[in-house]
Design a protein around this nucleic acid. Sequence first.
DNA 1: CTGAAAGCGCTTACAG
DNA 2: CTGAAAGCGCTTACAG
Lengths: 333, 333
Amino acid sequence: MARVSIKDVANRLGVSTATVSLVLNGKDKDGRVSENMAEKIRKEAKAMNYKPNNFARALRSGRSETIGLIIADISNPFFSHLAFHIQEHAERFGYSVIITNTNEDTAKMGKMISVLKSRQVDGFIIVPTENGKKYIDELLQDQFPLVLLDRYFSGINVSYVGVNNFQASMQATDYLLKCGCKRIALVIYKTNLRHMQERRDGYVAALAKYDLYDSRLIKEIDYRTIVNDMNRVVFDLMAGKEKIDGFFFSTNTISTLGLKKLAELNIKTPDDIKAVCFDKNDAFDFPGIAIPFVQQPIHEMGKRAVELLIEQMTRQQVLPVHEELTAILNKFS
Amino acid sequence: MARVSIKDVANRLGVSTATVSLVLNGKDKDGRVSENMAEKIRKEAKAMNYKPNNFARALRSGRSETIGLIIADISNPFFSHLAFHIQEHAERFGYSVIITNTNEDTAKMGKMISVLKSRQVDGFIIVPTENGKKYIDELLQDQFPLVLLDRYFSGINVSYVGVNNFQASMQATDYLLKCGCKRIALVIYKTNLRHMQERRDGYVAALAKYDLYDSRLIKEIDYRTIVNDMNRVVFDLMAGKEKIDGFFFSTNTISTLGLKKLAELNIKTPDDIKAVCFDKNDAFDFPGIAIPFVQQPIHEMGKRAVELLIEQMTRQQVLPVHEELTAILNKFS
DNA sequence: CTGAAAGCGCTTACAG
DNA sequence: CTGAAAGCGCTTACAG
């Protein structure tokens, strides 16, 4: 149980700790240490089962080899998968990930940043909450390596990985139009987060082309009262005098609740009404519930976020990058 | 950006770092430091925005205030919720959690233990994989604080938090019996993990009471080929000459696939066949899919696992505890 | 090519 | 009641 230190290895071989450290960190090239000695050291370290003490290393180097991840809602499968891929990928580069959750609460996001700072993470990957811009600004001011994921703010110069929300939403709306829908409702969060506005814009653009845009068909709901809001919205749209013939649900959670309400009202898709949504849901595995959805490249999103962050952490002065990956409509075809 | 160290605070006040450290760690009672000085130190530390360097502290103390969590499948909502609650609760005690995932792969579990060891976590919470007993044995031998979660092995003396699988399964099976079912099939993983065997035993016990037990109705499937296996099993049971009138799906994932296959075959629950399952699934929110399910106290499970682990980490020589929480059948009533 | 030494920031026995 | 000093395990200029 007693850990083997670099000193133990050095003593055993009658060399200095400096030499051992150099070799074990692969800095023995450029003629610093003889190949003969290096080999002996590597062998002995392995034999003694030497494991470096990360705290000593971190204390010395000021780097923890740890990434702080802040996501908005771990119970949402989109985010839990994202977290999974981020971790898998970080691991490959020798980084650990500390995952934290905000429940879409900005104060909590501030708190999680503090927690992760006190854990001395080397950098952050953040899915920010609606009013979290000020915290992001602070991190940037303090020069923390940082990548925003899924969502971003305008007027801020920071790396970001997301998808082509505008294009994908337009594609989803186009699909409904091709199905013959004339009156398509959009259900979306009331928020100023850019990615949501882009989804809205894509919807508007698609409808405008055919002169079918009607602002009254955009229904904004609140994350905090989502269940009631969804029930009301779906009921209103279906019971209203002006009949709706298509639904665009703009997120995973919205679609789940929307479809549930439709099922309760005994309205079937796609027979009674057409629907598409952004993101996949487990329930879509069921024949009666399946609707076309915009599929985000979750694996790739996690991968790129990690890569961009590591670049920031290991090089000096990296310019912020906006990376827009391609999400496409999955029609179950 | 330059961090304030304990020395900076000490210098400013003209005292020693020892005194500052004592005060800031709340060890200034027992007449070690004058209340006057202590107050001055606390004030100054705050004013200078002093934050302790965790690495230095960990290096000195040998403790990282970090918990390593190893779960079997983060994409399963049961586990992602569990991870969430564990983290929330650990946070309250000042511990961070590093979450890792094994995908039910024993070799990966071994690797994750290494990774977490090299991160010098103070203790482990583990949802072990089927053949992972040897790794658990090793951890115990090395005296690592450890709590198994959800699953355990027999013949091993280790703390464990789980649910009353036997009772809950009996209750679930009883429910089907009360619905009038006579031929109830159990679909379960082929595994030697104790918690699965308990679920099986509960099913058997309930049926045996009414002389309805028939071993041919227990269908074992393999996690790695689950999709094919489920399709085959459900098809066979429904198409077989001896008609089944009830299904007990023993996990979340099994039930999702089972229900999906039933839907494909156009067999409806509860009209055409009765079904119950262990664990909840998001899809159950939908009217057509809802079936009664055994509800595990996820929040409480996470909470207790953290509490038991912290007890082990902070006290010497704590005896292993088996804690069986109560899961009950949720009938959507 | 290799070693002696300083120092990262903290805690804790020890001395006074 | 308070300070001087050692040491946790590592890395990295510096000296030879």
